[in-house]
Design a protein around this nucleic acid. Sequence first.
DNA 1: AAAACAAACGTAACAATGACGTTTATAATT
DNA 2: AATTATAAACGTCATTGTTACGTTTGTTTT
Lengths: 243, 243
Amino acid sequence: MMLEKILNISVDCVVFGYDITSKSLNLLLIKRYLESNNEVLVDDYVLTGYHVYTHETLDDTATRVLKELTGLTNQYKKQFKAFGNPDRLMRPKDIIWIENEAFHLRTTTIAYYFLLKTEDVDLTNNTNGAAWFPVNDLPELGFDHKQIIQEAYEDLKEKCLSEPIIFKLLPDKFTINDVQDLYESILGIEIDNRNFRRKLINKKYIIALDEKQVGVSKKPAQLYMFSKDIYDKMFQKNYLISI
Amino acid sequence: MMLEKILNISVDCVVFGYDITSKSLNLLLIKRYLESNNEVLVDDYVLTGYHVYTHETLDDTATRVLKELTGLTNQYKKQFKAFGNPDRLMRPKDIIWIENEAFHLRTTTIAYYFLLKTEDVDLTNNTNGAAWFPVNDLPELGFDHKQIIQEAYEDLKEKCLSEPIIFKLLPDKFTINDVQDLYESILGIEIDNRNFRRKLINKKYIIALDEKQVGVSKKPAQLYMFSKDIYDKMFQKNYLISI
DNA sequence: AAAACAAACGTAACAATGACGTTTATAATT
DNA sequence: AATTATAAACGTCATTGTTACGTTTGTTTT
């Protein structure tokens, strides 16, 4: 018998974290493990997510989910797509009873991604098996979360070319090479350091600080910061049509 | 008494249509009018939309909604955002009864936009008061549809700069000036015709036909077509970082 | 034949990018 | 204290893409 389905809405969060030390762009995933009668039913990783409380906005839900997992608030957040295929049954065995009728629970998820620094997240007291994985070396993933991650990553690749969101992944003070390393990690390309350096230094919103790197055993690099104020002020749409 | 809300999912469609004759970018909206005891309760326009059938994908729903309104299929379609504030009560007076408990129906909508030609839509037999409105001269809008339209338009403005979606709004055969007029309509800017012309003509995927305009009382313009095949083949990501 | 119109052409100035050699500042090593 | 390794920083040149604008060409209307 084919059961009717009722709709449910959740939010899933793709949490990107950059580890500046290892120059690795990572994803925060949650371990899922279920066994019954010595048989392993589920053994994989999933995104963090939760259903939408009735009085929350979708953004509220995403913010809450991130906070519960990492303790962090005020991180860069972007809603990038809704996934709602009819076969998205989060718990296929579960049946909901309404008015003596049985329903499957069909879950549509609104997917967000976050950009933050791995060093800002403390996983030591974490009880749900959360762990970081490099985006290019992910474990087995549950549900359709592989696809969700893929689409989030594509969106990130595109957006980082035209908007200064890259600085959400970096500490407040960074070197030019930090930025280059990050672009190379995200895009999987190599960039000429001399040209990239000149390009960034000439931007008015990339501000040289009175500080240099400390604790390095070579010439310490100049530290810079990104000024969102200046960026926003000087940024007028130039409408470059590049089709 | 504050009722609990239950969740519902719908799809709303922002239908952009370009009228090449009047050079106007339009939106297809539906008249909403309700009165009771000679009192006008609702008198405005809304987007077309419908709730998601349980066995449909979200894309299916959008396709169905467009077909029911215009008869058209295979038009350019893009899911651009989900809107799900808790105060989105589509029919505030309506109450749903489940297990002898009363619920408000909270509707989350997955918003799509379509790009097509007004001339492809036949509204003469239409019964639901659908009509075209220039994007810059919209009537009073119901629900939060003004915001949804605004965000769709922003997305379109951005996307048309980097992807050749503009040709979805034009007939198969067009002049260079047609393309320029459309860009000027969408972006609200003026473009130097000579440079724009050269730029486009030099693209390998803008193909000159063996035809010229007919029925014009001046020098007939060369007709062109857009080759998606060539575009896709020659388009390799160049990763231009332009922050 | 002349006027009107818009497509099409040419060229110069400028800005952005990319490739690559050279110089400079610092820390570790000897 | 001198040397060396390293990477930041600088300079130059070629190429490409964009913008501005004067000029020419082809067609239709009068």
